[in-house]
Design a protein around this nucleic acid. Sequence first.
DNA 1: ATAAAATACATGTATATACATGAATTGAAA
DNA 2: TTTCAATTCATGTATATACATGTATTTTAT
Lengths: 160, 160
Amino acid sequence: MYIHTFVLQMKLEQAIQSTKFKNEVQKASLNVLYTAWWLKSLVSKELKEFGLTHEQYNVLRILKGKYPDQMCVRDIAQRMIEQNSNVPRIIDRLEIKKLVKRSSSLADKRETVITLTQAGIAILESSTVVLDAVYLSQITISEVEASALNTLLEKLREKQ
Amino acid sequence: MYIHTFVLQMKLEQAIQSTKFKNEVQKASLNVLYTAWWLKSLVSKELKEFGLTHEQYNVLRILKGKYPDQMCVRDIAQRMIEQNSNVPRIIDRLEIKKLVKRSSSLADKRETVITLTQAGIAILESSTVVLDAVYLSQITISEVEASALNTLLEKLREKQ
DNA sequence: ATAAAATACATGTATATACATGAATTGAAA
DNA sequence: TTTCAATTCATGTATATACATGTATTTTAT
């Protein structure tokens, strides 16, 4: 079932066909959730041609941040955006595609250390070029506005 | 480490253990994704005691918006925040728990119309009381700030 | 030195997302 | 009127999320 009402510019009210919000805070929460979905869709659509999911890309990107050092599963999990991600299973898929290599740690035998392969580096680099271009063309807010957005999002999460 | 100097501004950086962002726009994207995850976790934790998932709650809430009118699956799907949600399957779970009732439409036999049961209304009302309280205590930004956040999020999605 | 607790990871289950396909039905065109 | 296209929904597959549990290993406490 596909409700692909493709939208160039869509306010939240149009997107979720709702105009009744209790207040601006409730609306902002829904808006954050919707925007996250919008962003994920944008990225996933591009990653599809590389045979990667959003989460698989995220793991490759995290590994690249330490390359050529290896990382254990726990190190990767701590850097994931969705912090309940089941990293071993995401690594399963990447290993099948030979984008990463698993081996057990010599220092601590409980740990599994993960290494990017050359194929992993290559696919990460070419997909990143595409993603950067998409971000540049689709997200047109200024650096100043993005900075204000960052401040407000952190304020939203800031329990006082 | 630099953690000492940036303590107040380190929220996202601490959360995903990363300090390297290409620019504020890229950081804002990650911040939106992380905040959405944070919000979902907050809500899911409360809904657990009602045996509901975030998405099941969302479907109940949408149905309540039209109650006592019925809605077909497509109507519900159009109002979902994550617009690729597989609504028939979410309704499966709600039906098992007897929170909604399925019947086929007389007007258009392709359609399945969904009705909230009294149990569905009851669980929605009691869970909403809890969620409202959690929002109130955990999200402390002002209406003015929330409004600014809404404006920036819609600007982020606005391709020009 | 040994037992108990904690850690790291794999794996199992339930649910959701993302997308494809098929069946039934409706609507439009020839 | 008959045929074909579009729609509504259920269902199948792959992957991910959320969480629980089991196993191996390391650390801590007795």
